[in-house]
């Protein structure tokens, strides 16, 4: 059985500290076994400015068994599947300890965003890119953050729209925007110089 008393306390603690940590956890329904976590993209990374939603399912043995977590928000990261959002993180598997909490687990996920481990990849394609073409990786990760992890991801479509209206091809506009991480001015400069 899930220790709901503890989950309650964890939720209270999270909401108390959400201003300092930026991490939010809220139940999806009233049974507390399904929750949603939100972590802010760490500063100084391609994920900066993004807000990532994580689906949390508590197993019956919680907290003696690790919570199941996966990204709902699409994210470009060597240890997170770009398809399914599955996370490769030791503390969510065999290194879980009952002394860890949802908050500490989410903090670890956040730390994973700032420190990828490409040698132990979940997504081989991303990991390859990270190792071989780091700059492209950063570009794509930033573009994904821009496209999927921002409240105003429609902003991107507007940028595309505007650039297309200037007379550039849609495909080229998108790839250029992706390459510069969604910055409209940089993209325009690049488009003009090419």
């Amino acid at each position: 059985m899930i220790d709901f008393a503890r989950v309650q306390k964890e939720l209270q603690e999270c909401s108390r500290e959400k201003d300092t940590s930026g991490i939010k956890v809220s139940p999806k329904s009233d049974n507390l076994a399904r929750l949603t976590g939100i972590i802010p993209g760490p500063l100084g990374t391609p994920y900066e400015g993004g807000s990532f939603e994580i689906d949390i399912t508590l197993p019956d043995g919680y907290p003696f068994e690790p919570p199941k977590m996966k990204f709902v928000t699409k994210v470009w990261h060597p240890n997170i599947s770009s398809q399914s959002g599955a996370i490769c993180l030791d503390i969510l598997k065999d290194q879980w300890s009952p002394a860890l909490t949802l908050k500490t687990a989410l903090l670890s996920v956040q730390a994973l965003l700032s420190a990828p481990e490409p040698d132990d990849p979940q997504d081989a394609v991303v990991a390859q890119q990270y190792l071989r073409e780091y700059q492209t990786f950063v570009g794509t990760a930033r573009y994904w953050t821009e496209s999927f992890a921002k409240a105003s991801s429609l902003g991107l479509e507007e940028k595309v729209q505007r650039l297309v209206e200037m007379g550039f091809a849609v495909g080229l506009v998108r790839s250029t925007l992706e390459a510069v991480g969604g910055d409209e001015n940089l993209a325009l400069e690049k488009l003009l110089s090419s």
């Binding site: 220790d3 008393a5 503890r6 306390k9 964890e10 907290p63 009952p98 002394a99």
Partner: peptide
């Protein structure tokens, strides 16, 4: 009494 860090009681 003491606090158990697991069940938080």
């Amino acid at each position: 009494t003491a606090m158990c860090d697991i069940c938080m009681e």
